[in-house]
Design a protein around this nucleic acid. Sequence first.
RNA 1: CGGGGUGUAGCGCAGCUUGGUAGCGCGCCGCGUUCGGGACGCGGAGGUCGUGGGUUCAAAUCCCGCCACCCCGACCA
Length: 419
Amino acid sequence: MRRSQLFTKTSKTTPADETVRNAQLLIQAGFIHKEMAGVYAYLPLGKRVLHNISTIVREEMNAIGGNEVWMTVLQPKDIWEKTGRWDDKKVDNWFKTKLANGTELGVGLTHEEPITDMLHEFVSSYRDMPVYIYQIGTKFRNELRAKSGLMRGREFLMKDLYSFSRDQKEHDAFYEKCAEAYMKVYSRLGIGDITYRTYASGGIFSQFSDEFQTLSHVGEDTIYLDETKRLAVNKEIYNDEILTQLGLKKDELVEKRAVEVGNIFPLGTKYADDLGVYYTDEHGKQQSIIMGCYGIGISRLMGLLAEHFADDKGLVWPENIAPAKVYLARLGEDPAVVKQADELYDSLMTAGVEVLYDDRPAVRAGEKFADADLLGIPYRVVISDKTVAGKFYELKARTSDTAGQVSAEELRKALGINS
RNA sequence: CGGGGUGUAGCGCAGCUUGGUAGCGCGCCGCGUUCGGGACGCGGAGGUCGUGGGUUCAAAUCCCGCCACCCCGACCA
């Protein structure tokens, strides 16, 4: 993308109404726009980051047999009444609305009910199972207090997968498989080493659920961590009895702040039973369906990653989630410089390397360099009269303080282009 | 929802205590000089001072209500 065609701008100052680093940086760099508290729009560069995170999550969900769907935001009341979750006393963060004729509707905060209910249409035999359905979509939750930028919003992007298994064994196997897939996701996002599977409260369906907690000073959760076992316990269930049950020793645990970047729950047979969805087994007998649900907050991850991958100059995206791989800074309007920069832009884009091409005239070098740093693009390539005259390219990694002179071939190699 | 704080030009802020014709920096527009780490000079545009009411000859400034935003807490299938 050419910078001259990008409508967003960077700012020299951080917004006054954000105190958390992730929101400050993402707004300053023009990745997101704050619509209201806890509600953010994603601008071109931010949307790319969100897309790149989604792609990684999607690939891992597909790898374990997930079927991607796109469910609706508007929800009929009746299915939620069947499971007892329409009641505001039971679920207090609903957004609800009404049709013109007065019919009440819910605005989707999660999708167990609609996805399960939909299976009336498709599941009746053991041959139809197991079923793994997921979506990546917007969730709405009327949080009492939005905070920490993208970390706790009222409207946010989430991946939610639901499993429908024939028996406990099948469920347990998938549950573990999904937990492993989650760790793969976090590893690919570059936070695998600071993300821990964490025992947390299981609600009414099981004693525990499993959270995935990433260590961060902006975390809302406190966890107790066993570094060697790479396991943790959420403070909400932390007591002697639980520790004994889990085989964890108090003196081997350290207290840490962490961000919940995923949460998986066994749901038992409740939802399918309440909604009357069953299957017939090999012997012709009607059986209950065992469910699990598996969530990853995509937009929250973006906030966490922005918080984590940053320095005093701005964002420092890992290559696989950066909005572009190369920031091509063209210095000057000399025809030879323009020609070479245009050609490099075309050839890199053709080779599948995403380039943010700073072709803006009348913008000085310092500003372009500062922007390249603020936006956190992994590589910066400079084309100027100097590089044209010297027949080299200037290459600098975002994580490095010094730029090097490289040949065309070395440049392609450094950017991972096989030629 | 309880406690605390903040709303003044696109952004960041001063002015408010002690009422008297709204200012600074950045950004933006024009001209010129610059041109490898956010340049400089000259000229210019841009504001119902969050909002509604009240007090007053006069309100950004004082009083009351409301709205929004931030932080702490509570809450977070």
